[in-house]
Simulated scan of single mutants.
Amino acid sequence: MQLAFCLYKYFPFGGMQRDFLRIAQACQARGHAIRVYVLEWQGEVPPAFEVVHVPVRALFNHLRYRKYTDWVRADLARRPAGRVIGFNKMPGLDVYYAADPCFEDKAQTLRNPLYRLGGRYRHFAAYERAVFGADSRTEILMISAVQQPLFVHHYGTPERRFHLLPPGIAPDRRAPANAGEIRAAFRQEFGLGTDDLLLVQIGSGFKTKGLDRSLKALAALPEALRRRTRLMVIGQDDPKPFKLQAIALGLAEHVQFLKGRSDVPRFLLGADLLIHPAYNENTGTVLLEAIVAGLPVLTTAVCGYAHYITDADAGRVVPSPFEQGALDIRLAEMLSADDDRRRWQANGLAFAARADLYSLPERAADRILQPAADATAQR
Rank of each mutant, 00 (worst) to 15 (best):
Q2C: 06
L7G: 04
Y10M: 12
F11Y: 14
F13D: 02
L21E: 08
I34M: 05
I34H: 03
Y37M: 06
L39K: 02
W41E: 10
G43P: 08
P46T: 08
P47Q: 15
V52F: 02
P55N: 10
R57E: 06
N61Y: 12
H62K: 12
Y65T: 06
Y65W: 15
K67N: 04
W71D: 05
V72P: 00
R73N: 08
A81D: 06
G86S: 07
D94L: 08
D94F: 07
Y96K: 09
D105A: 13
K106M: 15
P113Y: 03
L114G: 11
L114I: 13
L114S: 11
R116H: 06
G119V: 07
Y121G: 03
Y127M: 15
G133F: 11
V146M: 11
P149S: 13
P149A: 13
V152S: 15
H153I: 14
H154D: 08
G156M: 15
R160C: 13
R161Y: 13
H163L: 10
A175C: 07
A177Q: 08
N178F: 09
A179I: 01
I182V: 14
A184C: 11
F186A: 12
R187H: 06
G191I: 09
L192R: 04
G193L: 07
L198W: 04
Q201A: 08
I202P: 01
I202A: 04
S204F: 00
S204E: 02
G205L: 00
F206P: 00
F206M: 01
K209D: 00
D212L: 07
D212Y: 05
A217W: 02
L221E: 04
L225V: 03
L225F: 01
R227P: 05
R227Q: 11
R228G: 04
T229M: 01
L231Y: 05
D237K: 08
D238F: 14
D238P: 14
P239K: 12
L251D: 05
D263Q: 06
P265E: 01
R266V: 08
L268K: 03
G270N: 09
L273M: 11
I275L: 10
H276I: 00
Y279P: 02
E281W: 02
N282E: 10
T285S: 09
V292K: 12
V292R: 13
A293V: 05
G294I: 08
P296Q: 05
P296E: 01
V297N: 06
T300I: 01
A306P: 06
T310Q: 13
D311Y: 14
D311L: 15
A312G: 08
G315Y: 09
V317M: 07
P321D: 05
L327E: 02
I329N: 11
R330I: 02
M334W: 00
A337H: 01
D339H: 09
R341P: 00
A352V: 10
R354A: 10
L357M: 09
Y358I: 12
L360E: 05
P361C: 03
R367Y: 14
D374V: 10
A375M: 14
T376D: 15
